[in-house]
Computed example of a mutant assay.
Amino acid sequence: MKRWKALVFFDLDGTLLDTQSKISKENQQAIQALRQNNILPLIASGRSPQEIKQITAKTSIHSYVSLNGQYNVVENQVVSKYAFPINILLKLMDVARLFNHSFACYSDKEYAACYRDEIMEKLYRLDNAPLPRLSTDFHLKNEIYMGYLFSEEEVKDALYQEIFADTLTFYRDSPYSLAVVLKGQSKKAGIQQIIHHLGLAHLPTYAFGDGNNDLGMFEAVRTSIAMGNASENVKKYADFVTKSHVEDGIRFGLNHFKLLTRKEENNDY
């Protein structure tokens, strides 16, 4: 087992990824340098485990908080996961239909929707991600860890929150979508569960993010770093603001905190 010196959590979209939703060569090198320096790099994202695996395939990242804290993995080992009770999921789908909002269900391996519409297509085009496959019974045959509502009607966000106040949390993560998780789950909770699992609460922890759904992540670590492209609301909660995600902001931030300095030794237990 590695003797880790620190943990660094990265959001994906608008943070570790470029405008094509890829990890740049420079960021790949930075991630590798972290591991060589006995610092564990982790992803904290609303994206699915399968998406994260594909995106990080050329890196040495094998740990992540996925689906906004619903499915969490350390070095390829699942440490916590939270599936939707079927009665809550069915009620959510009924309300989405009532509001004429399309909806996707996420398992740990794939995602599917009963139908597609223009707003759904806008979101996946923005994320450079494949559209959900179509299925009317996917949610009945798979454990569902996150829901995705597709809506541009922000005025209705509060209605969802009111209807499901005791059971679900809604994160508006784009002009077109709301991520839906079980009440009590979040990037913050997922990070806390991973740190507890590793028994490393005494170590320095860092998080890079750019969106409002990263604010909980900032609360879970000792040092929070906002990207230069983050909103002013996100920046005001950060301990440090680095350059934007297209201006080598990850390496700039890591260098600022001296996390890329190579150690002389590489000790294992």
Rank of each mutant, 00 (worst) to 15 (best):
K2F: 06
R3C: 09
R3A: 08
A6L: 13
A6D: 12
F9S: 02
F10A: 01
F10T: 01
D11N: 04
D11F: 00
L12K: 01
D13V: 05
G14K: 13
S21F: 05
K22D: 15
I23C: 07
S24D: 08
E26I: 07
Q32A: 10
R35D: 02
Q36E: 14
I43D: 00
I43G: 06
A44V: 03
S48Q: 13
P49C: 00
P49G: 03
Q54L: 02
I55K: 00
T56H: 04
A57I: 01
A57R: 07
S60W: 00
Y64L: 00
Y64C: 00
V65A: 01
V73P: 02
V73K: 00
V73D: 00
E75R: 00
E75P: 05
N76P: 02
K81S: 02
I86M: 09
I88M: 06
N100H: 14
H101D: 06
F103T: 06
A104V: 04
Y111R: 11
Y111S: 05
A112W: 03
A112K: 05
A113S: 13
D117G: 10
E118F: 11
I119S: 06
K122W: 07
L123F: 12
L123K: 10
N128A: 10
N128M: 08
P130N: 06
L131I: 09
L131Y: 12
R133F: 15
R133P: 02
L134W: 11
T136K: 12
F138R: 05
H139R: 05
L140W: 11
N142Y: 01
N142C: 01
E143L: 06
I144T: 00
Y145Q: 00
Y145L: 01
L149Y: 12
F150R: 05
V155C: 09
K156Y: 09
K156Q: 15
K156R: 12
D157P: 11
D157K: 13
F164G: 03
D166W: 03
T169Q: 13
F170L: 12
D173F: 03
D173C: 14
P175M: 09
S186Y: 02
K187C: 03
Q192M: 09
Q193T: 11
G199Q: 03
L200M: 06
L203A: 11
T205W: 04
A207L: 06
F208S: 02
D210I: 05
N212D: 14
N213C: 10
F218Y: 14
F218N: 04
A220M: 02
V221L: 08
T223D: 03
M227K: 09
M227V: 07
G228I: 13
N229I: 09
S231V: 15
V234W: 05
V234P: 05
V234F: 11
A238L: 10
F240R: 03
S244G: 13
E247Y: 07
I250H: 05
R251N: 08
G253C: 07
K258P: 02
L259C: 03
T261L: 14
E264K: 13
E265H: 10
N266G: 10
